[in-house]
Simulated scan of single mutants.
Amino acid sequence: MDQRNATNRPGAKHVALLAGVSTATVSRALNSPGAVDPATLQRVRDAVAQLRYVPHGAARSLRSQRSRMVGAIVPSFDYALYAKTTSALQQHLSAQGYSVVLAEHHYDLEQELHVARQLVEHGVDAFMLVGIDHDPRLFDLLDEHRRPFVLTWGVDTTGRHPYIGFDNRAAAQEVARHVISLGHERIGIVSAPVEGNDRGRERLAGFRAAIAQAGLKEPQVEHARIALHDAAAAMKKLLARKPRPTAVLATNDVLAVGAMMACRAAGISIPDDVAITGIDNTDLGATQTPGLTSVRTPIVEIGEAAAEQLVALIEGRGEARSRVMEFELVVRDSARRRLRRKDG
């Protein structure tokens, strides 16, 4: 790693020169990005990334002392499960005298990089990141400024980065195999968007793999944002197919419950007409009528383990390590054995 001293570190004037703007514009871009036009803002951000620039005052603070703050950057505040993970992280950190700084990036990995750089500038000691997919420049940033981190909610099969998570593909395969074992052959899928979302991508791949291994036809797939209304709209499209699927697999419980809403609105019985399953085993799914068959994932345990590891890394009491956690199929009444009818 480059060991340049403070006098050789890039300054705002170097960023300004590379971006072709004034130092005042650099300051506005870093502190009030909304006040700078998008093209100029992008030039400044590119220059900051190329130079690996951190304001000198923040850099001195980082070198001199810990802030006792951990950054948790999640894809979205709208998805309640990330709140459960970060709540567990906060509780365990608080007991050891640390606080959490929470940020979101809306599945935009470049925005995640920008947010992480801001948190580094404000002295955050370490990071909990969600998922395996990240801009490579993010890891360069954290390495340059010696900020420990842990990836969560997934498994980094490359072995390059420490993670605490579970096998999303295997979890999806397990619930898909359960549905297939009930005699369902026409299967539909409601999937979260997969761009910038390795969890959704791996779950969708797990569904497809189980269906292919069973020798069944390619599943009908509709994508939807993780919101009940969007999921209901996606399910409505699946129900309009001829012939319609006898079972629908959703990549999370929110999408599954949205699918159930569409069935109720159309007068379609669950599970007699259509079986529905989810993943994550949330209260939302468990309290439906019928209760949602799902996969319990270690949402809280991930936050607790991440807190323990990050504190140990910050305080020099251990090395970064990876951990694969268990999941469990939870069978309820939203999926049952296929009743053979005239439509097959």
Rank of each mutant, 00 (worst) to 15 (best):
M1T: 10
T7M: 13
N8G: 05
A16K: 02
L17T: 12
A29K: 02
N31W: 00
P33L: 12
D37F: 12
P38Q: 13
V48P: 10
A49C: 06
L62G: 14
Q65N: 07
V74C: 08
S76D: 06
S76Q: 07
Y79I: 13
A80R: 01
A83Q: 01
T85K: 02
T85R: 04
Q91A: 13
Q91S: 12
Q96M: 09
G97P: 09
V101M: 14
Y107R: 00
Y107C: 02
A116K: 02
R117L: 11
V120W: 04
H122A: 08
V124N: 01
V130I: 15
D133C: 04
R137A: 11
D140T: 10
D143K: 14
R146D: 13
F149K: 01
T152N: 03
G154Q: 05
G159T: 05
V175Y: 03
H178G: 07
G183D: 12
I187S: 08
V190W: 06
A192F: 00
A192D: 07
P193G: 02
P193H: 03
E195L: 11
G196Y: 08
D198Q: 01
R203K: 09
L204A: 05
L204Q: 06
A205F: 10
A205M: 14
G206R: 03
A209P: 06
E218T: 15
Q220R: 10
V221P: 02
E222K: 02
A224E: 12
I226L: 13
A227Y: 01
H229S: 13
A231R: 00
A232W: 05
A234S: 13
M235P: 11
K236L: 10
A240I: 10
A250L: 00
G258K: 01
A266Y: 02
S269R: 09
I270N: 02
D273E: 10
V274M: 12
T277R: 02
G278K: 00
G278C: 06
T282M: 08
L284F: 07
G291V: 04
T297Q: 04
P298G: 02
A306P: 08
A312K: 06
V330P: 04
D333T: 10
R340T: 14
R341L: 11
R341C: 09
D343P: 15
D343S: 15
G344P: 06
